[in-house]
Structures are given as structure tokens and as C-alpha cells.
Simulated assay, not measured.
Amino acid sequence: MTIRPPGNPVVEVRELEVPVYRGNHKVMCALRWKRHADFCTFDIELDGPDEPVHRSGRDLFDALQQVRLELERQGLVIAVQGARTDAYPTGMIRNMVAASRVYIMEIGRDVERKHLVNTFAEAELHTIGTVEQQDAHYREWLEHRNSAGQA
């Protein structure tokens, strides 16, 4: 649990429903995210299906990955675009919109604006992977990009 300094109040809160799966069983759960005044601290609270999960990160994608790691331990999967194996934010997206959007990154293809999706929009279950798989795909995408001289 992260301890917040008293001078870093919450300045924005959003709430939405997201699909969470255990196997093929889907449950819609409430997700709340909060932005703090420093714009460097984001909290995500997911209600259920077993117990609430609360995690923080430097942006929304980082906080989502922290939530996903806990869900993985519980045998659960959150089926949102930001949990797709091939989804990841660039540094610019992290800085400009706090990773509220992510790119769908295909190996061998540079990203364009048309590849941006909302981090918390529902995704097909078969596109979701673990945090480890997602990070590995991003590293592979970077390696191919760098070897092609696109860096």
C-alpha cells in the first residue's frame, strides 16, 4: 500500500465497469481510477469478484499492471485493451495522457495514431496475456523496431 503525502490530494476520479474472467466465467466489476495532484500518482480500485484490489502506479498503465499482477495470483483476468499482450503505451502517451490510451503494437510495424485504443475499453478474452507476456512482447517489438532503424 502506498502512503500519500498530505499535499497530494486526489483531483480526478473516474468509474467504469470492466469484465473480469475466471476461466470463461465473466463478471462485470466496478473499476475506479484516481489521479493525484502531482500527476505522477494514479490509483486503481477494482471491486471483486472475490475481493477488492487497490494498487497505485506512476500512470494508469502502470497501476493497471499492478492490479493485473494481483488478479493473476487469484486466477483472474481483466479483459481490457490495456491488458492485451500486444498493447503498450509509448513514453509520449505516458507523459501526455497518463497512459489512458495504449498502442496496439504489431511486431515489425511502427505505431501510428490509428493504433491507439482506450486502456480500459473491453477487449476479447483471447487477446489478453499476463503482465510478463505483455512486457516480453513490448521488448520484442522494441528490438525489431530498433534493428529496423526506426528508433
Rank of each mutant, 00 (worst) to 15 (best):
P49W: 01
G91T: 10
G108H: 02
V131M: 07
Q133T: 06
P5K: 09
P6H: 07
R94W: 03
N8R: 06
V97M: 09
M96T: 10
E17M: 14
I44F: 06
L71W: 05
I93E: 02
V111W: 03
F61Q: 08
E51C: 12
G48T: 08
P49I: 02
N95Q: 14
L16F: 10
S147A: 13
L31N: 08
E143Q: 13
I128P: 11
H25G: 00
K26E: 14
I78S: 09
P52A: 13
Q74D: 08
H25N: 06
N24L: 11
G75A: 03
V27E: 09
Y21P: 05
G91E: 12
D135S: 06
I44S: 05
P89C: 04
D43A: 15
V111G: 00
N95A: 15
E12Q: 13
R4F: 15
V80I: 07
L71N: 04
K34Y: 13
Y88G: 00
R145N: 03
D110H: 07
L116A: 00
A87M: 11
T2K: 15
L142Q: 11
E72T: 05
E45W: 04
E124Y: 13
Q81L: 11
W33M: 09
V80C: 08
S56G: 03
V67Q: 04
Y138F: 12
M1R: 07
V18H: 07
I107C: 07
E140R: 15
A83Y: 01
T2Y: 15
M105A: 06
